[in-house]
Design a protein around this nucleic acid. Structure first.
Lengths: 213, 213
DNA sequence: CTCATGAATGAATGGTCATTCATTTGTTGC
DNA sequence: GCAACAAATGAATGACCATTCATTCATGAG
């Protein structure tokens, strides 16, 4: 049994802590060297550990990379689901505002995490395993956003607009803004990316979202 | 001197033809195996040629990959520039329509080419060389789109809207729609992607672009 | 036909890297 | 304190792959 936490010098930490360490190191390596530049040596050195450690805790490099993708993905999904599930929003408009604010919150737009996301997406078409792990792009999430947007349209008595189209557009717009701001933040500063997304929502839901926040 | 084109069986073709062959083979390999799965053996086999040939015509694998990216990129840039430069458009609206139609034309949305594009973008942040070669994402192109949009806003006497923001949004939206449709065309069929982009433009320029085309 | 040229070939080379495992070392129960 | 255990190490292994270059061969000039 583990009686007390032993964090004296270096060895023997619980499995979960080491896995977390290694995943964090992998995220940094992907951001620094690109997905194809990730080596076990680099990851373990970044983590300050020895070569063999990654194969001890993850079975292989592939599994390490996959779990890293899932880590980043799960974090996003949890945040978004929390907003969609919460009973605390006074209005549909507030919930949409929260989705927008979340999509451009520092924790989501952190460049290391986005680098992981787009690194894998670049390979997703040729690797079904990666594609399945990219849950932001899944039908369930899109369906829930669509339902939220439909609710806003109903409230505004707008029978003309297509919530599915607006949702698909919003999801794609955010992906594109992230990508553009990540690759060249001087051309597209994050503040401008945020305003572009807000502008999109303000146009689609004029009664709910105002241009200035 | 070369008196007549000798295309008997297999050997000795002009340098330009071989380079084109190899670039086409590289595009297919990136689409099939992902950027990181591209090997010289695979590329040359796909081209039906021998191993050493790629190093003969391109200096190295890196140069081959870079020229492949530039090939895809240049093709897009040429098409877009042709529309922006043409004197044949009767109106600003027609030019915007042409940009939209071009962005979703089969030659642009062909999955092999988009796979190349996003494969490199996934690595762009960690490889400045790639980033510079991704000209779709350059300031010059964005400036010209912005100018076009500004013209439309002026024609509509719309002094309120921000052409720069609408342009940045359009560019990002198209990137995102391409990416989503490429990764999972069942969730986002190309036809829906097109309608989402058209919807965006129709909302920004109601006097110029109609929802139904 | 013969030779010179240079495009094309592909086996061989050397480097990189994931993975293994014998050994080391911290930790725990007694 | 001391086994017994388990986590951690890192040198060694073998697979994969870009690149090289001696050789082969199509081509065209004389």
């Amino acid at each position: 049994m583990v009686s007390k936490a032993a964090n004296k010098n270096r060895r023997a930490l619980p499995k979960a802590v080491r896995k977390e360490q290694l995943i964090q190191a992998t995220i940094k390596c992907i951001a620094k060297h690109g997905l194809s530049g990730v080596t076990m040596a680099r990851v373990t050195q970044e983590a300050g550990l020895s070569m063999g450690i990654a194969n001890l805790h993850f079975e292989s490099k592939d599994k390490l990379l996959l779990e890293t993708l899932q880590y980043v993905t799960a974090e996003y999904a949890a945040g978004q689901t929390a907003i969609l599930d919460s009973a605390d929003f006074p209005s549909c408009a507030a919930r949409i505002e929260a989705i927008l604010a979340f999509d451009f919150s520092p924790n989501v737009t952190e460049k290391n995490k986005l680098a992981v996301w787009f690194g894998f997406l670049g390979e997703a078409k040729s690797r079904p395993t990666y594609q399945r792990a990219c849950s932001r792009q899944d039908s369930a999430s899109e369906a829930r956003i669509t339902a939220l947007f439909q609710q806003a349209l109903d409230e505004a008595r707008d029978k003309h607009a297509d919530a599915g189209l607006i949702a698909a557009g919003y999801i794609a717009l955010v992906d594109g803004l992230w990508l553009n701001a990540l690759v060249d933040p001087r051309r597209l500063p994050w503040e401008k990316a945020y305003r572009a997304a807000r502008h999109y929502l303000a146009t689609a839901f004029p009664k709910h979202i105002k241009l200035e926040n």
